[in-house]
Design a protein around this nucleic acid. Structure first.
Length: 570
RNA sequence: CGGGGCGUAGCGCAGCCUGGUAGCGCACCUGCCUUGGGCGCAGGGGGUCGGGCGUUCAAAUCGCCCCGCCCCGACCA
């Protein structure tokens, strides 16, 4: 393509609204323009990258025998009402009415639609297994779109769904996807983590997320550098660090003491001179019709997902101040488990075996010392604690670190949730009706582009991996008034195209500095500079990554670059 | 939905406090010049100052209301 004919609106300055690096560079590189919050137009460079990413995804999905469909983006409400998600999705779902007043929505995901297809058509175990996928625009009315293409209201997702006769079949489909995803992300040149994920209250037995470590990330991943264990913080298990001070010995009785205006763990620690880990943190929670007192070590945090899992509830909330006073007889800041009979008491495992700790006395401005679980109150023990940086790895004894990360893919054993609720049945070999088991697998395509830029950039701009760069090579004649350079560059353009390369010819009548800056900013992996060495029969090949430059004979350069590009895509 | 910030030319910003001719840099157009890292000189075009209402002889500037965008939090199959 001839650059002089293209619309690639690069920006010298960074637009004020862009905070994260990928957003800044996508705007500056002329990849995207915003239409509205979380809604973007993809210009030529972005579209070309997206098409390359899409092609890689398609190849790898086809390789595992998945079949590509394209499902509607516009769905009638009834389908979502059947699965119960019309209500569940709440304000995150875009809804609209047609001219007859019937409710429709824009698809956020396609489990329902796939299941409708399957139940209408699948009749026999002989038709299983199936893996169906699509590459579709999804719509989600995010409460807060942000970070360029990282969190948006309209985006492209590859989503696939597997249908199997039994759990062993699902295991196989899941495993195929795991390997396909690894190939996809490898081919896109990403450095990523595969982490255990929380599978929600959907009966899912297993779930993994593919994450790219990034400061722009919204998830936290606990990772052990020693053994490679990695899990979403929601789910991560760990070995708590030892309490900062040993518990007092002996079979001591709880003893009240005055703690005027000391409400927080930190204030009580300072007042008593004992570390936070010697205290019990008491949280009064309301989960459905249950009143719960959750106990943690003073320096630990409650994991909301673990709490829900432990109690088998979907959601909970902190009790209101009036409820706390009514249930506990005191206000937050002086709460503890001793003498509490009307609430369910759950304690984190880290409290098991502890003795003579500090807890609230359920009398304002008083605490108790010498509180011992199992003696002074009877808790049910669960893993309720959120893992923290510096905790021990539960698998190898190494040390866990926490990293921010962006989720780029998620594979998920759905189980029978949709097939059951929406009535998908097939006959098995014995002629009995059985419910197929499903899996669901997603990849956010824009996030591949965004995280790649996040991962690979320098002060001059984007440094995309060759397989997903909008162009593979740019030819830059330094002086367009030089007939020799112009002719040589034009001839080279033909040769590179003939060699099958994605080549851009910067034939613009611009100063060399402008062309170099633009090529760097957009992130074209190789640049062939046709300039002052041409009389010696030489041109320069500059690699965007690292800026290394080599002189190559004009007649050899097409093969030279083709070999480099070929190696990078292999 | 709570908290904060911003909205003036395509982009980055000043002007607003203290009301009176709308400005700077970059980009854009024309000409000359220049050609190895966002040249130089000269000339030029482009703005309902986010919108509405109000105060005033007079509003980008003061007041009220609304909208949009960004950030933090809440939320996030």
């Amino acid at each position: 393509m001839y650059w002089s004919k293209l619309f690639i609106p690069t920006l010298r300055e960074t637009p004020a609204e862009a905070e994260v690096i990928s957003h800044q560079l996508l705007l500056r590189g002329g990849y995207i323009r915003q239409l509205s919050a979380g809604i973007y137009s993809y210009l030529l460079p972005a579209q070309r990258s997206m098409l390359k990413i899409t092609a890689i995804v398609r190849e790898e999905m086809d390789r595992i025998g998945a079949q590509e469909f394209l499902l509607p983006a516009l769905h009638p409400a009834e389908v979502w009402q059947e699965s119960g998600r019309w209500e569940l999705m709440g304000d995150n779902m875009f809804r609209l009415k047609d001219r007859n007043g019937r409710w429709l929505c824009l698809g956020m995901t396609h489990e329902e639609i796939m299941t409708v297809l399957a139940r209408g058509e699948l009749r026999s175990y002989k038709q299983l297994p199936q893996i169906w996928y699509q590459i579709q625009t999804k719509f989600r009315d995010e409460p807060r779109p942000k970070s360029g293409l990282m969190r948006v209201r309209q985006f492209t997702m590859k989503d696939s769904y597997s249908f199997d006769l039994d759990p062993a079949g699902l295991d196989a489909a899941y495993e195929k996807h795991r390997r396909a995803y690894e190939r996809i992300f490898d081919r896109c040149g990403l450095e990523y983590l595969t982490v255990e994920a929380h599978s929600g209250a959907m009966g899912g037995s297993q779930s993994q997320e593919f994450m790219v470590a990034s400061d722009a990330g919204e998830d936290l991943v606990a990772r052990c550098k020693n053994c490679g264990y990695a899990a979403n913080l929601e789910k991560a298990t760990s070995v708590a660090q030892a309490p900062a001070a040993a518990d007092p010995e002996g079979d001591l009785e709880p003893e009240e003491f005055h703690t005027p205006n000391r409400k927080t763990i930190a204030e009580v620690a300072e007042f008593t001179g004992l570390p936070e880990s010697s205290q019990m943190k008491s949280l009064v929670l309301s989960a459905g019709d249950q009143r719960v007192l959750a106990l943690l070590r003073g320096d630990h945090q409650l994991s909301e997902t673990k709490f829900c899992t432990a109690l088998g509830v979907k959601e909970f909330r902190p009790a209101h101040p009036e409820e706390i006073h009514q249930w506990m007889g005191a206000d937050a800041g002086s709460l503890g488990p001793v003498g509490i009979n009307d609430l369910r008491i759950v304690a984190d495992e880290a409290l098991r075996g502890r003795r003579n700790m500090i807890a609230g006395a359920n009398r304002n401005d008083y605490h108790l010392r010498n509180v011992t679980p199992g003696e002074d109150f009877q808790p049910e023990y669960f893993d309720l604690r959120q893992a923290a940086a510096g905790d021990g790895c539960a698998h190898c004894g190494g040390t866990l670190e926490l990293v921010k990360a962006v989720e780029i893919g998620h594979i998920f054993k759905l189980g029978y949730k949709y097939s059951e609720s929406m009535g998908l049945r097939v006959l098995n070999e014995a002629g009995q009706e059985v419910t197929p088991i499903m899996g669901s697998y997603g990849i956010g395509l824009e996030r591949i582009l965004s995280t790649a830029i996040d991962l690979y950039h320098d002060k001059d701009g984007i440094v995309l991996p060759v397989p997903i760069a909008p162009f593979e090579v740019v030819i830059t004649p330094v002086n367009t008034n030089d007939a020799g350079q112009k002719a040589a560059a034009g001839k080279l353009y033909g040769e590179l195209k003939a060699a099958g390369l994605d080549v851009l010819f910067d034939d613009r009548d611009e100063r060399p500095g402008v062309k170099f800056k633009d090529a760097d900013l957009i992130g074209i992996p190789y640049r062939i500079t046709v300039g002052k060495k041409l009389p010696q029969g030489l041109v320069e090949v500059v690699e965007r990554k690292g800026k290394a430059s080599v002189d190559v004979k004009v007649e050899e350069v097409a093969a030279f670059v083709a070999a480099k590009v070929g190696a990078a895509k292999a």
